[in-house]
């Protein structure tokens, strides 16, 4: 019985028929999705923090509203994704608890600090750029609610990357101090952005199964290569150099070659040793705990109103 269900399931996947919440699915598929979608949702929520830093310090009102709207969008994306995850039978509270206790991971990139205004532009350009590379294929993911959430996310994400690039373009046309701020920021964010695609294919344990399930459509290295090829040209427009001496065009491959990634750093940041890991989680836990009395109040009020209504009806 189990076997024939599994075969039928895989057949649906192979025929590009979407899986919906109440359909039968293998437990491992459900678990993989919960892990990936919640990790994605957590990344959006934690990702609000490094950029949120600069909402109160944005250099003019136009930048301020754009940044606030952008960070708010990330809250929205987190919400769409938590909702998608909840269709798999896990509550948002449970997911948040996993984040707060360190059981669930989020994208390591957000454990790096935003120390200058240029970082806001660079996040838009490189980090959102890398995120879009990762996310666009997810719009065709086999799980319906995830795919639909990603369609909404990707639509909104393109404004993010453009607002980032515009910030950097303005800096590149500005004073010497601004150009230095820009180059310094790109130097700091380039390698962490490259790491966003995850380990090399050879070291990526879940990849093959995820590809078979069509949760994942392209390998880490494929996406990373696309990202490099895209950024090299865009860097020229900004008049910045990418901090990789090995970066050069490879005629034979039709792609840019790039230097080795420091996987030691990557795994350490994943493990919790990045510059901001502790701060980020502490901030999230704080917000949640400080909000407890508000959530309780609203629940209590709703209950009181409901019982008042019940009395009126009776």
């Amino acid at each position: 019985m189990e076997n024939s269900m599994a075969d039928k399931f895989q057949q649906k996947i192979d025929d590009d028929i979407r899986i919906e919440p109440r359909d039968w699915m293998p437990e491992a598929y459900r678990k993989t999705l919960i892990r990936q979608i919640s990790q994605h949702a957590h990344s959006e929520i934690v990702g609000m923090l490094p950029e949120g830093n600069w909402i109160t310090r944005a250099p003019n009102l136009r930048r301020k509203v754009a940044l606030l709207a952008k960070v708010q969008d990330e809250a929205g994306h987190g919400l769409y994704l938590y909702s998608a995850c909840e269709t798999l039978g896990v509550s948002r509270d449970e997911l948040i608890n996993q984040l707060h206790t360190g059981k669930a991971k989020y994208s390591s990139i957000f454990n790096y600090p935003t120390i200058t205004w240029a970082d806001i532009g660079t996040i838009g350009w490189l980090v959102d750029g890398a995120a879009i590379m990762n996310q666009v294929p997810l719009c065709r993911c086999s799980y319906g609610p995830y795919a639909r959430a990603m369609v909404k996310v990707c639509k909104e994400e393109s404004f993010h990357q453009r607002q980032g690039f515009e910030i950097l373009l303005t800096l590149s046309k500005g004073t010497e101090a601004q150009r230095q701020m820009l180059q310094d920021s790109v130097n700091r964010w380039w390698w962490p952005s490259m790491m966003m695609f995850g380990p090399n294919d050879a070291d990526s344990p879940h990849s093959a199964q995820s590809m078979a399930w069509k949760i994942k459509r392209f390998s880490n290295d494929e996406l990373r290569q696309r990202f490099v090829d895209m950024c090299v040209d865009q860097a020229k427009i900004l008049n910045v150099t990418l901090p990789d001496p090995d970066l050069k065009w490879n005629e034979e491959r039709g792609h840019y070659d790039y230097g080795p990634i420091d996987w030691d750093e990557f795994w350490n940041v994943v493990k919790g040793n990045g510059p901001c890991n502790r701060d980020r989680i502490e901030t999230r836990v704080n917000a949640y705990e400080k909000g407890a009395w508000v959530r309780e109040a609203a629940s209590a009020y709703a209950e009181k109103q409901a019982s008042k209504k019940a009395i009126q009806v009776a």
Binding site: G52, K64, A75, G76, Y82, A287, K290, G291, V294, R295
Partner: peptide, 29 residues
């Protein structure tokens, strides 16, 4: 109000507060 962004008591209210902050700053402009 924008200082709340990322720190709201629940995600939905974080978004609501940011909308209100955007209204005010938009009016200021």
């Amino acid at each position: 109000i924008s200082e709340w962004c990322g720190h709201g008591p629940v995600l939905e209210q974080d978004i609501a507060l940011a909308n209100i902050a955007l209204d005010h700053i938009g009016q200021a402009r």
